[in-house]
Write a protein that binds this DNA or RNA. Sequence first.
DNA 1: TCAAAAGTGTTAGTGTTACACCCATGA
DNA 2: TCATGGGTGTAACACTAACACTTTTGA
Lengths: 229, 229
Amino acid sequence: MTEAFYNNKDKLYVAVDCIIMGFQDNELNILIAKRPFEPMKGGWSLMGGFVNSFESINEAAKRVVGEFTGIDDIYLEQVGAFGEVDRDLERVISIGYYALVDIEKFDTSLAAKYDARWVRITQLPELIFDHSLMVKDTLNLLQRRAAVKPIGFNLLQEKFTLPTLQSLYESIYQNAIDKRNFRKKILAMDILEKLDEKDKTSSRKGAFYYRFIKEKYDQLIQQGLNFSI
Amino acid sequence: MTEAFYNNKDKLYVAVDCIIMGFQDNELNILIAKRPFEPMKGGWSLMGGFVNSFESINEAAKRVVGEFTGIDDIYLEQVGAFGEVDRDLERVISIGYYALVDIEKFDTSLAAKYDARWVRITQLPELIFDHSLMVKDTLNLLQRRAAVKPIGFNLLQEKFTLPTLQSLYESIYQNAIDKRNFRKKILAMDILEKLDEKDKTSSRKGAFYYRFIKEKYDQLIQQGLNFSI
DNA sequence: TCAAAAGTGTTAGTGTTACACCCATGA
DNA sequence: TCATGGGTGTAACACTAACACTTTTGA
């Protein structure tokens, strides 16, 4: 009987908690919500849900992000498992995932429904349980990833300006970058296409729009390019 | 009733699988065992166990490594959670941990007890379930970690020679390193103490032993040093 | 005396950092 | 015309990578 080996073992609740990130007002923002039920009712919380027995943990994370944002075109990566005995009221193992989304695609009707809002990463309140730790680990991971993979573009619209792209990286690394060096580096990689159109919302002169050319990036990677900011 | 929120949710088995690494014969070795029970009886497997409801996942990993090696002075780090629906026969979420141990401290009587053995990382057989994937992810993580943290010393005895240290890094990165450049870099950090004693087991001339000075390292880190290989 | 591994410096090239002024535009 | 943010090049420096010979010793 093959079941015997498992039978006398404990089963635990398994949840996913999602650190959903968007880029707005030149800063990373995270979607958090006021928790509508006990325990910790009214506390600020990440967006989470339980893993069902018929879905993988990745699927569960994708489902949760979809539920709370209305977006299904998401960059998702696991942060890790959080498993202190007392991290929740019941024994719950939680698996953290961060998601990078284009905040323009956010279904704002869901904000009211879940009492959720986007908060700048520099102005996050204390979160319930170990959620603040999850955010900290996420920022760490994101910093390492964004340095070597072009994942930042998942946070932007199709068209973006270089000043916007730069402030995205400045928000990720939480420090100022010299704009000449930044431009030199990113343009030298030759993975951006300059468009004829300008964004004039933030200056009179206007900044040219650029577009990330995924096909070109993939091709250059084949040839041994390594992305690096 | 605070339990209501949890009550109708699925509970799952949660396991830890440990990638236990040692350094031997100038190469990274991983402890694997022939699985003594179904499913996949007889297949090569990592060392694992279930998470009990009264221990944290970190504690579970430490317990498992202790059980299978007899060592309790371990460097442990989580690799991540693995949660495909069909990754095991039953629905089991597994959390991978890698452990760096001094292989000299291994309790060899446990090898027979568990039908376990140390296998060079370059010569690993196919492992059951997603264990090969866990090893792959571990090597990736280890490469990133070992580049910026002095964790390699956990794999060595208190005293070690520079040729040994170099071959450790060569095994981690799976490529050859120029010995002049390597020595220059590691010695420049000023975190090793040269001893008066030589290891003569691998050459007539003998290689001087060195010792990692953790106190000095901690102090230099305070002052803004950054470790980098 | 010789085989085998340990030990030692220099140079060219590459990448990184620091830095200041002109441009285009709408109000 | 002026205030505002966009856009541009160069030089010093630091780091990395490439490279070959001498030393020590036991068999």
